[in-house]
Every structure is written in structure tokens, then in C-alpha cells.
């Protein structure tokens, strides 16, 4: 079965509906499997350009997997992914990525500026020197996340919130059109959360597209304008105003979300 799916979708032409070429990230029939059990099954998603989009779903629903498989960080069984209508390999210059903070070892021997400059490595290649302009870009990125005073700080000395800001600064240094963030608010302090959301809103104001894996249902309506609900399968997708409904959430989370909890959320009544 997996083989048939691969044959049917890999070349794109035979996939049912073609991906929208304007969409910063369009996914068709994405299936990802860890061992026997699928983590994502035949997921379709079309994120609109210029949106602040949240990928929402219960633990183990495949939120991060969707991001990672779209970027080609993990292998997928089948599926077609396009970024601004292009295959991912041709669009890497237009993508900035913020991995989960906990995915790296913060005892690595390096400084804050050095990490931000890693956002320039694709442009710098193996040998191109880090110019004054590159350094200015890194300094500017640190300023936008409120970390200008930490440029030469050892990364091992940062708090969790500061680590997350440095990762966001590195993404800003990539000067991309699409920003993909994996749980950017996980385990950060309130000030950092506000700083990050300000930066993301500024990106949106510049016409950039933002897609974030998000786990805090209470802030979805406040922070985002587009939502993608997933639980292994795609459950619902659309503007927060019309899609982020108690019915859609109940369907996505099954019995795992208490009714009382639903009442506390700033939900739009469908």
C-alpha cells in the first residue's frame, strides 16, 4: 500500500489536486511512519501566504512531524510538499527554521553571535568570509529579539527564554519569506513569549508567512489568524475565526480535552 501511494504522489502530476503555487507551504498526501504506526496519514494542508498560522493538536498528533517532514528533516513514506510552488530543495533559501530548543546541546562551545551567524551559513558556503555586513545583520537580529547585550555570551549561560530568542534571531538572520517554528513558546518566560510574538507579528506586517507548532490552546485566537488542526490525519484547516471551534477541537482531541477546559478557551462559537 505504501508503495502504491509513493508511485501515485511522488511526481506530483498524478496527485488529485495540485498544490497552490502561491502557498508558502502546501502538503499533499503526506504520510510519515515511525515503525508500524503512522505518525501522519495522508495529510493535506495549504497554508496561505502572509498568514500567522498555528499547527495545533494533542501530544503525539504529529505536529512537529508535519513540520519536520515538510522540511525533509525526516523521511516520509509518501507525499508531495511545495514551498511557494517549488520543491523544497529549490526553496531552501526562502525558509527560516526554528527547531525545538531542547533538540540541541546548549553546552556546545560557542557564543550567541556565532549561533546567529549560523543562519548565514547557507549563503556563506564553506569559505566566504564573514563580512562586516553579515555581523551587522546578526547584531540587528539580536536587537529585534532584545538580546543585543548578549552577543559574546557563552550559549551555556543562557536561560531557556534567552536560548529561544537566540534561535529566533538565527532564523531572522536567514532573511527568509517563510518562518517555520517548532514549539517556540515551550518553556519560556512570559517576557520572552511577548517578545517572540511581537517579532512574529512584525514579520507578518512585512508580508512574511509564519507557521508555528503551538500547544497552548488558550492563546491560539490571540496570536494566530490561521489554524491547522491535526491528529495523525488533518482534522480542520482555515481562519481561526471560523475553524477554531469547540466542535473541531472536540473532534481533534477526542476525549482528551475536558469540556470545562473548552469553556475557558477564547473560542469563536461556530
Amino acid at each position: 500500500m505504501a508503495e502504491t501511494l509513493t508511485l501515485a504522489t511522488r511526481d506530483g502530476t498524478s496527485a488529485g489536486t495540485g498544490p497552490d503555487p502561491a502557498s508558502p507551504l502546501a502538503v499533499r498526501g503526506l504520510t510519515v511512519s515511525y515503525g508500524e504506526k503512522p505518525a501522519l496519514f495522508s495529510v493535506d494542508a495549504t497554508f496561505p501566504v502572509g498568514a500567522m498560522a498555528a499547527i495545533v493538536g494533542p501530544n503525539g498528533a504529529g505536529k512537529s512531524t508535519l513540520l519536520k517532514a515538510s522540511l525533509g528533516l525526516i523521511p516520509s513514506v509518501s507525499g508531495l510538499v511545495t514551498v511557494f510552488g517549488q520543491p523544497i530543495a529549490a526553496a531552501r533559501d526562502r525558509i527560516a527554521y526554528v527547531p525545538q530548543r531542547a533538540s540541541v546541546d546548549w553546552d556546545f562551545p560557542t557564543t550567541v553571535t556565532d549561533v546567529v551567524l549560523m543562519g548565514r551559513y547557507r549563503k556563506l558556503g564553506l569559505f566566504r568570509r564573514v563580512t562586516r555586513a553579515e555581523c551587522a545583520l546578526a547584531t540587528d537580529a539580536l536587537g529585534r529579539v532584545g538580546m543585543e547585550g548578549f552577543a559574546s555570551r557563552q550559549i551555556g549561560q543562557l536561560s531557556g527564554g534567552q536560548q529561544q530568542r537566540v534561535f529566533l534571531a538565527r532564523a531572522l538572520a536567514q532573511e527568509a519569506d517563510l518562518y517555520l517554528l517548532d514549539e517556540p513558546f515551550a518553556g519560556v518566560d512570559a517576557a520572552t513569549e511577548r517578545a517572540i510574538i511581537e517579532v512574529l507579528k512584525a514579520l507578518k506586517a512585512e508580508g512574511k508567512s509564519v507557521i508555528a507548532v503551538h500547544h497552548d490552546l488558550s492563546t491560539v485566537a490571540e496570536y494566530f489568524d490561521h489554524v491547522f488542526l491535526v491528529n495523525v490525519r488533518a482534522m480542520a484547516e482555515g481562519p481561526v475565526a471560523t475553524t477554531f471551534t469547540p466542535e473541531a477541537l472536540a473532534q481533534t482531541y477526542g476525549g482528551r480535552l475536558a469540556a470545562t477546559h473548552l469553556d475557558q478557551l477564547a473560542l469563536v462559537r461556530g
Partner: peptide
Amino acid sequence: FDEGFARAI
């Protein structure tokens, strides 16, 4: 340092 980011670029 960061395998995921390295793959992403």
C-alpha cells in the same frame, strides 16, 4: 551543534 537546522538549510 544543531542537526535539524543543518538539514533545514
